[in-house]
């Protein structure tokens, strides 16, 4: 696979049955993606109660496509370009309820949501969470990695699993 490093990564086999969503891939080269980050710590409370400020997380930065809905991802936030963390709610080809109607996601886009409700965030001393409701669909070029494990604090070590998207009325 060393010959693949430095390419645009398009040679990687993608099984459309195992991973139907997404579409476009991260354009960064494998070498760029291998630089990480592999470990991150969380600031602010929009992912409470599952992921708290100060948590130490392991991420897989080699991910090229949005993981399945319910997965937690690190990405570059549109507008601010900050490294941010949110949960994938829907991917390209799907549609999400928005403002009384629907938004149809384009190829390679994902709709990312905070876990915390405004009430949960407020109880922890934060303002309302900022997610795709504010910054819209996120293109896959801004994907940095998939969060898969929490290695700190000691008492909450464990896998970061998928949580199914909430059922909408």
């Amino acid at each position: 696979m060393t010959s693949d490093a430095g390419s645009t990564g398009t040679q990687a086999a993608v099984d459309p049955v195992a991973d139907p969503g997404g579409g476009r891939e991260v354009q960064r080269t494998l070498r760029e993606r291998l630089r990480g980050p592999w470990r991150v710590t969380v600031a602010e409370g929009s992912m409470l109660p599952d992921i708290a400020p100060g948590d130490w997380l392991l991420i897989d930065p080699t991910t090229r496509r949005w993981p399945r809905p319910g997965s937690v991802v690190v990405f570059r936030e549109p507008v601010t370009d900050d490294l941010a963390i949110k949960r994938v709610r829907a991917r390209g080809g799907e549609r999400v309820p928005f403002n009384g109607g629907y938004i149809a996601l384009g190829e390679g886009e994902a709709w990312l949501e905070a876990d915390a409700t405004p009430a949960i965030a407020a109880a922890a001393g934060y303002g309302p969470p900022i997610d795709s409701d504010r910054f819209g669909p996120v293109p896959v070029d801004l994907l940095v990695g998939r969060v898969w494990f929490r290695y700190g604090p000691w008492k909450r070590i464990g896998r970061i699993g998928r949580i199914g998207p909430p059922t909408t009325p």
């Binding site: 991150v40 710590t41 490294l83």
Partner: peptide, 15 residues
């Protein structure tokens, strides 16, 4: 050594 060097933001509006 094992502490993460990168901060990711679980963004909230800031009062």
């Amino acid at each position: 050594t094992i502490a993460p060097k990168t901060v990711v933001r679980a963004h909230c509006d800031l009062p």
